[in-house]
């Protein structure tokens, strides 16, 4: 500790402190709050201010976390089975939707008359709440994998389709003019101008659709299966294991985070020219 009589080093010390303060990254603040909240929670349960059964404390969650990784829940269904089941369903439904919706959207968007003819259908189909289709899909296809993947695909399809159509229509006329005056044919303009020009918005749609996939997966895993993270948290409820439900939610957050990051990474690789990824979201 520098003494106050010694003015110069003290000022240097303050300066250093200021400088270090400036370099604290934002996430450190966030982490601090999280740790404080977890500690408060633990403390409150310890002193019986809140019910340990309805609010299992972090220490309990940590033990459950470990137990789930080791033994799984319910007995015999390992955690990686849950992870794999959920991930597969999402990837299947999501990629089917993307593979169908992107080419179709590009085509519809580039054909104005067709676009006008199908616009009301798309608007309505998009408004239909995917989860309200659950009972219908069960009546049609039964309670099976197909129903689950179908609903995920349905929810994502319309979002991606709309974004692809808007993307094509939103490509600046300037670029088309420029390409025309450079002698590009219609086909060349489509492949080299419309397609790359619409990718940023298509990616924005893909991002929203991923969120939709996560909303739907939980609902469809709540019925007729014991495999998958949605099933895990619902099953835990049936056994009054709030701790397992909470750890299940942490698992879901982890998958969601990883998939969103993967998509952002893909976008940076595939669209190196886009400055601000957020810009496109508007």
């Amino acid at each position: 500790m520098p003494s106050s009589s010694d003015a110069t080093p003290r000022r240097a010390w303050i300066r250093r402190l200021r400088r270090t303060r400036l370099t604290i990254p934002d996430w450190a603040y966030g982490l601090l709050t999280v740790l404080v909240l977890l500690w408060l929670w633990e403390y409150a349960v310890d002193h019986a201010w809140i019910n340990a059964y309805r609010f299992p404390p972090p220490s309990k969650l940590a033990r459950t976390f470990e137990a789930l990784l080791e033994r799984g829940f319910p007995r015999g269904v390992t955690t990686d089975t849950h992870f794999k089941a959920t991930l597969w369903r999402i990837l299947k439904g999501y990629s089917v939707a993307a593979v169908c919706a992107i080419p179709l959207g590009l085509f519809v968007g580039a054909t104005p008359l067709l676009e006008r003819a199908v616009a009301p259908i798309i608007t309505f189909a998009r408004s239909v709440a995917t989860l309200s289709l659950l009972p219908l899909a069960v009546a049609w296809f039964g309670v099976g994998e197909f129903t689950r993947v179908f609903l995920i695909a349905y929810g994502c399809f319309w979002i991606i389709l709309t974004s692809a159509i808007n993307a094509v229509q939103g490509v600046s006329k300037q670029y088309v003019f420029a390409a025309q005056s450079l002698g590009a044919s219609r086909r060349q303009i489509f492949m080299q101008v419309m397609l790359p020009g619409s990718l940023p918005r298509i990616f924005a749609g893909l991002r929203v659709a991923l969120g939709m996939a996560f909303l739907v997966i939980i609902a469809v895993e709540m019925i007729g299966t014991i495999e998958g993270l949605g099933a895990l948290i619902m099953e835990a409820r049936n056994f009054y294991r709030t701790d397992v439900t909470m750890v299940g939610m942490i698992f879901i957050a982890i998958i969601g985070f990883v998939l969103a990051r993967t998509l952002a990474w893909l976008e940076r690789i595939l669209l190196p020219w886009v400055t601000d990824l957020e810009e496109v979201q508007r």
């Binding site: 909240l37 949605g230 439900t245 879901i252």
Partner: peptide, 25 residues
């Protein structure tokens, strides 16, 4: 900055995943 930590952690959890907890609470 302080509040963004918990929000960022809870954000990826879809609302429906809260159903069991909501029923419990």
């Amino acid at each position: 900055k302080l509040i963004w930590g918990p929000i960022e952690i809870l954000r990826p959890v879809p609302p429906l995943a809260w159903i069991p907890i909501a029923l419990m609470w």
